[in-house]
Design a binder for these strands. Structure first.
Lengths: 246, 246
DNA sequence: GAGGTTCTGTGGTCTAACCACACTCTAAAG
DNA sequence: CTTTAGAGTGTGGTTAGACCACAGAACCTC
């Protein structure tokens, strides 16, 4: 995005230079996950720029989930490299939804796409599946609606992770916030929450069972129907909700 | 991401406050697409923070593709609200690929997933399809390999847009950089580029034809085979490359 | 009226301070 | 000797104020 744009007369802004330097360090492996960036003042001196510019670059990386900044000293302090792709995608999605340029219906549709794909190829031995099962247990005896929804989102996230595709997992994770936010609003439209919750639990069990029977196709269909059914029941179905099919 | 973290003793950083304020303005519609933020100095005074903090917030928004900052005066100047979801996702993906936490194989796999889904439900009357056809024409007489690849990426991007899902389009767009970067590297492994290029063109035509015949299923299959075939020919197939199926 | 010239407001950058924090070291107290 | 209270050190967080480059607008001069 920043570099590679062969625009002559393009005066690269200073913080982008810092960004480029750090990205290069990441590419060459000189900076790896868990590694720490030089202190802001040090880095500023090294690159011959002001600390301000260094900080702007770090803010961007932080928003992207690439680093985490911590004050003080010790292992928790300093600016350390992390890997949280979800952070960037999630914030970006939320912001663009705020500008009304990413319709909620599209998000639901995308969720169905990603999730049905993921369960269709979920690995039976994935630890994420075990986590999903555990979450399902918790949901069995969960009286609170909000807590139930939170668990529900985590359950679906776990399903998405079971396919073992980091990009798909990250994208699903980034939808999490958006999903939880309006899923909560939708419960108000439901006539009988207890009945709905019971149905959701039952459907979750069916999905897990299908996965364990290595019946990916069925699992995908169940997931699609599950999500679709919820939004339809709440009166806000995606504009075209059947999953990827061919 | 920023708020909602119910951590007591959590001192929100100043630039996050600015971020929150701006996001709120976007949500309520007081700031809309094409609108201009108050000048940095003005905003700093309004929110009773330093200009530095305002700038850090703006840097983040800029990286997310939410605003564009321009110097000088006139319509091109100032900090303007834009909508470029691709920017955020693209940069984030590139950075996380740099940290080796998003395997290329996963990206290819995700590309196949999104793209085959998109063509399966492409709207025949979509302007994106017309653009795809135009790009195809250009590729017919394109001697340069790099240029051909650039056109190829744009062609596939247009296909993804034809489904009319903004989120899917944004995600595909964000993969663009990553795709083009290693697609270029892969050409070195090809024994006969001219032959390959001819085949790719032919496959593109088939895909477009299938879409226009409203045969989404066939189109999806063709796209999957098309992408998969290329990477296999170059000796770097995704680890599991068949598209969503049920 | 056409052509410069100055004015004004914008973001871009830098410096130099100060703060809060969390660990580390040290020296006094027991 | 152990414990503990305090100073020391290095980190990011924040601020104020200054200066620059830029681009349009308003103003003059010819």
């Amino acid at each position: 995005m920043w570099s590679n744009h062969i625009k002559y007369h393009w005066h690269m802004r200073t913080h982008q230079l810092v960004l480029q330097w750090i990205e290069n360090q990441l590419s060459t492996g000189e900076l790896a996950l868990g590694g720490r960036l030089p202190a802001e003042r040090t880095l500023a001196e090294q690159l011959q720029v002001s600390r301000t510019s260094v900080r702007e670059a770090i803010r961007v990386l932080e928003a992207m989930g690439v680093v985490r900044a911590g004050v003080g000293s010790g292992p928790e302090a300093g600016t350390v490299v992390i890997a949280d792709p979800t952070a960037a995608l999630g914030s970006a999605l939320r912001l663009h939804v705020a500008t009304s340029h990413l319709p909620v219906a599209d998000i639901v549709q995308t969720r169905i796409l990603l999730e049905s794909w993921a369960v269709a190829r979920a690995r039976t031995d994935s630890p994420a599946l075990a986590e999903a099962a555990a979450l399902l247990e918790k949901m069995e005896a969960c009286p609170d609606t909000d807590e139930f929804l939170a668990l529900d989102v985590r359950f679906h996230l776990a399903l998405a992770e079971a396919a073992g595709n980091a990009v798909v997992s990250a994208m699903m994770g980034s939808l999490r916030e958006a999903i939880q936010s309006y899923a909560g609003k939708l419960t108000a439209n439901l006539p009988d929450w207890d009945a709905t919750a019971a149905r959701l639990r039952a459907e979750h069990r069916e999905i897990l069972a299908a996965i364990h029977k290595h019946d990916g196709g069925t699992a995908a269909g169940l997931v699609a129907a599950h999500i679709e059914g919820y939004y339809k029941e709440a009166g806000l179905g995606p504009r075209d909700s059947d999953p990827a099919r061919q």
